[in-house]
Computed example of a mutant assay.
Amino acid sequence: MELFGGTFQKLENSLNYASAKNRTISNNIANVDTPNYKSKDVAFKNVLNEALNTSFETKRTHPKHISFNNVNTNQSFQTITNRNSMYNHNGNNVDIDKEMSDLAKNQIYYRSLVDRMNGKFSSLQTVIRGGR
């Protein structure tokens, strides 16, 4: 039985994503002058896999073939490295303007998640107190 209908788990996963994205952006900003540093980003990795796994079963024609049903879905995001571009003469590809913009967007996203979670707790507190 799920007491809260999965809302808190989804909010927690979203907060984990926002925290990982914030760490990655901060790391990119800190390494803006590091030679040959390649910027990183946080992206969802298993969203498509989860959708595909629920819609069809893969056929294994040999026992050594990997089953897609055993994919680890505990974490729905991963950090990826952008190796396709170079903005500076020293091999660094961090665009400080983009990183600062992404940081601001991520902070707004994180704060909205925290506000939503606080609202959920406030609603629970009201119910526990009997509507007062």
Score class of each variant (00 low, 15 high):
14 S>Q: 12
15 L>H: 04
15 L>R: 03
15 L>Q: 04
16 N>C: 03
17 Y>R: 05
17 Y>D: 00
18 A>S: 04
18 A>L: 00
19 S>Y: 10
19 S>W: 13
20 A>N: 09
21 K>M: 08
21 K>Q: 14
22 N>C: 08
23 R>H: 12
23 R>G: 09
24 T>P: 05
24 T>K: 04
26 S>N: 15
26 S>K: 06
27 N>L: 05
28 N>F: 01
29 I>R: 08
30 A>Y: 00
30 A>C: 02
31 N>K: 06
32 V>W: 04
33 D>P: 07
33 D>L: 08
33 D>G: 05
34 T>A: 01
35 P>K: 00
36 N>M: 04
36 N>V: 03
37 Y>L: 00
38 K>R: 10
39 S>L: 05
39 S>K: 15
40 K>A: 08
40 K>F: 00
41 D>F: 10
42 V>S: 05
42 V>I: 02
44 F>Q: 00
44 F>K: 01
44 F>G: 04
45 K>D: 14
46 N>I: 07
46 N>G: 12
47 V>K: 09
48 L>E: 14
49 N>K: 11
49 N>L: 11
50 E>S: 14
51 A>N: 12
53 N>G: 01
53 N>E: 06
54 T>R: 15
56 F>R: 11
57 E>N: 15
57 E>L: 09
57 E>D: 15
59 K>W: 01
59 K>E: 10
61 T>M: 06
62 H>Q: 08
62 H>W: 01
62 H>V: 05
63 P>G: 02
64 K>T: 13
65 H>D: 15
65 H>L: 10
65 H>I: 03
66 I>Y: 08
67 S>L: 07
67 S>F: 02
67 S>E: 09
69 N>S: 15
69 N>W: 05
69 N>L: 12
70 N>Q: 13
71 V>I: 15
71 V>A: 04
72 N>E: 07
72 N>K: 07
72 N>Y: 00
73 T>Q: 08
73 T>A: 09
73 T>F: 13
74 N>E: 11
75 Q>C: 02
75 Q>K: 11
76 S>A: 13
76 S>G: 14
78 Q>L: 06
79 T>W: 06
79 T>C: 08
80 I>W: 07
80 I>L: 12
80 I>E: 13
80 I>H: 06
81 T>H: 06
83 R>V: 11
86 M>L: 04
86 M>T: 13
87 Y>H: 04
88 N>L: 14
89 H>T: 14
89 H>S: 14
90 N>P: 01
